[in-house]
Design a binder for these strands. Structure first.
Lengths: 213, 213
DNA sequence: TAGATTGTTAATCGATTAACAATC
DNA sequence: TAGATTGTTAATCGATTAACAATC
């Protein structure tokens, strides 16, 4: 502890652990789980599970393991998934629509799924005003305004590559510092803004490499 | 060279380099590019660009850089993206449909985009037989057969989590050894099969962590 | 030639794994 | 208690970065 710069890889695994615990709580399988079993279920070594968790505190008991309910709630706290995270999806094409529907459905069904699609945006006048699962499609001109009104914390970019940078600029101006970019292009943002690439074609192109072996 | 176990991270970056070169070729900007500029455009250090490329050969010239056309064609070769890669999408819900449409559009528009969605599968009788951008939706019962017929090399799983493992099993039996899994669940496959996680909720949940700072 | 830029080696940094004393 | 399993330290492994001789 002390000089904490926790890597992205650790955070990703924490999400996996959290999910297993969410499931276990639902099914009331057991009250405790060992690092060994948590690893089994997520494809991670037991030693790494313990190391990952140790970054954030001492959650286990020797000889027993981790209390499911307790660790679950701790991991939710660590990931800031204790209350709704309001998300805007910009670009309601096929992908944006799929993402919105999928997440809204999960949000309704699952008690502990805090990702809330709170607003949709598009520049197509035919789409503006339409309502998807209770969420309105707004004009992109209203982005700053709605971001403020609905306390949007995260932006998902699903517009064509050509407009991705422009949308990112608007989000940055509207003080949205966390962006998930589905456009297959690199976008440039200030230091304090975090952009993650979620480039589906990249995944496919990347997998092609392994076709040889 | 010699004992080559090239990491996933390298391959991902190679895809990024390839894309920049594809673009440059289209726009005929210049004939050569330095590791420095290739790095600039992809968010990678020049030294790393050179290191990444060096895994596969000596493609540059001192004092000059890399020939755009030549390096482009080499990277396509390395990634096995010189000819069509036939892909099946299993599960034509919102996400599967979005993925199919998006990739088919790119395939039609871009000369050097070799990811070809060659077949769609679903178990909903209402959807079976429907044609999306020229590609038929088949019953999942026909998966093995069509995989063979259409020489499918890659499977994309976009069915609900509950069925993901079952679909993976069918793909494995049909000799599809490269799978992209969008279901938010861990699936188990034999050693020689490669599954990549493309879990969109994980991306969002993972980003939530950074909302704190 | 002089300047630019490669490919490669060595140094650094960070992440994973193994081992084990502490302790429930 | 005896067995199980933690949290942590040390060892290992791998990836990134810096530096530079080679050379176009």
């Amino acid at each position: 502890m002390g000089n904490r710069k926790i890597s992205d890889a650790v955070i990703r695994r924490i999400v996996l652990y959290m999910r297993v615990l969410d499931e276990m709580e639902q099914t009331s399988e057991k009250d405790a789980i060992s690092s060994y079993e948590l690893g089994e279920r997520t494809g991670v070594r037991a030693a790494q599970v313990r190391k990952d968790l140790a970054w954030f505190g001492e959650f286990g008991k020797q000889g027993v393991g981790y209390d499911v309910q307790f660790l679950k709630s701790q991991l939710h706290r660590i990931l800031h998934l204790e209350k709704d995270v309001n998300v805007a999806v910009i670009g309601v094409g096929n992908l944006g629509l799929a993402l919105a529907r999928y997440n809204l459905e999960r949000y309704k069904k699952e008690k502990e799924y805090y990702i809330k699609i709170a607003a949709l945006f598009d520049n197509n006048p035919k789409k503006i005003g339409e309502i998807i699962e209770g969420v309105t499609i707004y004009s992109i001109d209203l982005l700053s305004e709605i971001v403020y009104e609905k306390e949007i914390a995260m932006g998902v970019i699903t517009v064509p590559s050509l407009h991705a940078q422009q949308i990112a600029d608007i989000l940055v101006k509207a003080n949205v510092k966390t962006i998930l970019n589905f456009a297959p292009t690199t976008i440039v943002v200030p230091e304090d803004t975090r952009v993650h690439r979620a480039d589906l074609s990249l995944e496919l192109q990347h997998l092609a490499y392994y076709l040889g072996s």
